[in-house]
Amino acid sequence: MSINDRYFMLCYTERIHEFAKIDEYKKWTVGTARTKYKTLDEFYQTELEINQKELIHLRTDFKRFNDLYSRYFNEQRKELFEKPKPFLEWYDKQKESCNYCGITQSELHTIVKLRDGKLTLNKKTKRSKGTLEIEKLNANLGYTFKNCVLSCPFCNNAKSNLISEDGWRAFFVPAMKEYFNSILNNDSK
């Protein structure tokens, strides 16, 4: 197994980001890792048999995947994150825009700015940053590359599991585009 594969396994499969996870991974008594290692970096260097500079280089190689993993990973979507390369290839095909209405990540951020720092009208934190979301095309199927797309929070929330993809595109996407244009042109909030 390559160092990259071993790093991926420790960081993303085993999710070792705290000493307790090291104890669990090594099957040690709780608290052992904290006495054995001064830092998590020391654990990674020892386990991977690399130095600090090599560890920094590994983290740099994984930075883009890590950013997307931090933004999108949850247990339901676990299958999408099994390997970095296929996930990044899938993500790049999404073009950082909503699969339905076409609004871009940049335009969503503009809406957040126009709404005084929140995407939502009621100032609740969920979806407040205006980040594109991973949406299942068919709600009855799992989170797979063939069944998932990026979607804006508006389309994802409104379509939910209530409206088919075809129905959403035919009846609601034109109205969503008109709505976004009115916000972006500062006609309404």
Rank of each mutant, 00 (worst) to 15 (best):
K83D: 08
P84R: 10
P84H: 04
P86S: 08
F87N: 00
L88F: 03
L88A: 03
L88P: 01
E89V: 12
W90M: 04
W90R: 03
Y91G: 02
Y91C: 00
D92G: 03
K93C: 06
K95E: 15
K95M: 11
K95F: 08
K95R: 14
E96C: 04
E96K: 15
E96M: 12
E96A: 10
C98E: 06
Y100L: 11
Y100C: 09
Y100M: 10
C101K: 04
G102C: 09
G102R: 07
I103L: 08
T104K: 09
T104R: 06
T104A: 10
T104S: 15
T104Y: 07
S106N: 12
S106E: 15
E107H: 08
L108V: 11
L108W: 06
T110Q: 15
T110N: 10
I111G: 01
I111S: 03
I111T: 03
I111V: 15
V112H: 05
K113Q: 13
K113V: 05
K113S: 12
D116W: 02
K118A: 05
T120F: 00
L121F: 11
N122W: 10
K123L: 13
K124H: 13
K124W: 03
T125I: 12
T125W: 04
T125Y: 09
K126Q: 13
K126N: 09
R127C: 09
R127V: 03
S128Y: 07
S128L: 08
S128M: 13
K129I: 07
G130A: 07
G130L: 05
T131I: 12
T131N: 15
L132I: 08
